[in-house]
């Protein structure tokens, strides 16, 4: 009898609404707990299965055309590779002359996008490679066009990438010509904003924006985008620089996770 009295609130719409709001707020507070993450990864496994069907279908459909295209690309890359090899050798000689060390050489983990966020503002993609493939949280993700984002969640077989156009994404950046540092963040899809660039700095549309290398997550020199526009106001010390991302996030399919040693304090964040 008492139990049914407790359940009586289920018949009152406002009390029920308050109950769900309370549960939602509780979920927000415990969003990162292991058990909730476990449920999240289990659901993503289902998506992986759906994706494997889709991939198999499109794979067979495009195989012949892809083969032809790859042959041409292979030929082109062969020639480019030869030229690059010459340049690397030349670069090594010049570095030796300047007594500079080669700073980084990274391993890449190839991954495929299997799903993306269904909510507006949150811009994330689910990759088909996880902890067992060597992916760890806070590793940077790139493709041939430039910087894609960073890993924000990892399970055994999948991982989640927060892409640059996510509301909460911030990347230490640098203007390629002036070398001035700033922070790139969300500027309203599909744009990015480069902040904290002083007004006395000369900025030109078309100038490249690259990672500054000051963060321990993103290696230096990864292409973020191109300056399209900038504006100044009398009351602000900094100008507002609008950046077009180098990566076409709508057509994101294959990416590479940069395998780096993430320091303990960052990995735990």
């Amino acid at each position: 009898m008492r139990f049914t009295r407790y359940l009586a609130f289920l018949n009152k719409p406002y009390l029920l609404l308050l109950g769900y709001i309370f549960l939602s707020v509780v979920l927000m507070n415990f969003s990162d707990t292991a058990s909730l993450q476990g449920v999240r990864w289990a659901l993503l496994q289902v998506l992986n299965v759906v994706d494997s069907f889709k991939t198999e279908f499109t794979y067979r459909k495009n195989l012949e055309a892809e083969n032809e295209r790859l042959k041409k690309e292979n030929f082109y890359l062969h020639i480019t590779n030869q030229r690059m090899r010459e340049m690397v050798l030349e670069n090594a000689r010049l570095r030796e002359l300047l007594n500079l060390k080669t700073e980084h050489s990274y391993d890449f983990i190839a991954a495929r996008v299997i799903a993306e966020s269904s909510e507006k503002g949150i811009n994330s993609r689910v990759l088909n490679v996880g902890e067992q493939g060597g992916v760890r949280e806070n590793m940077a993700v790139v493709n041939a066009e430039g910087l894609v984002g960073k890993i924000i969640g990892v399970s055994a077989h999948q991982s989640i990438v927060q892409v640059l156009t996510d509301l909460n994404c911030r990347v230490g950046a640098r203007l390629e010509k002036s070398r001035e540092k700033g922070i790139v963040g969300w500027g309203g899809d599909p744009w990015l904003d480069l902040e904290y660039i002083p007004k006395n700095i000369r900025v030109e549309p078309g100038e490249l924006v690259i990672t500054s290398g000051l963060s321990e997550i993103y290696p230096e020199g990864l292409k973020i985008g191109v300056v399209t526009d900038f504006s100044e106001t009398d009351y602000d010390m900094f100008m507002s620089v609008r950046v077009k991302p180098a990566v076409n996030f709508n057509a994101l399919e294959e990416v590479f996770v940069i395998k780096t040693e993430i320091p303990e304090n960052i990995a735990r964040e």
Binding site: S31, S118, E119
Partner: peptide, 9 residues
């Protein structure tokens, strides 16, 4: 759960 965003939002 699927979107990877803040759970509960």
């Amino acid at each position: 759960l699927i979107s990877g965003g803040l759970l509960g939002l």
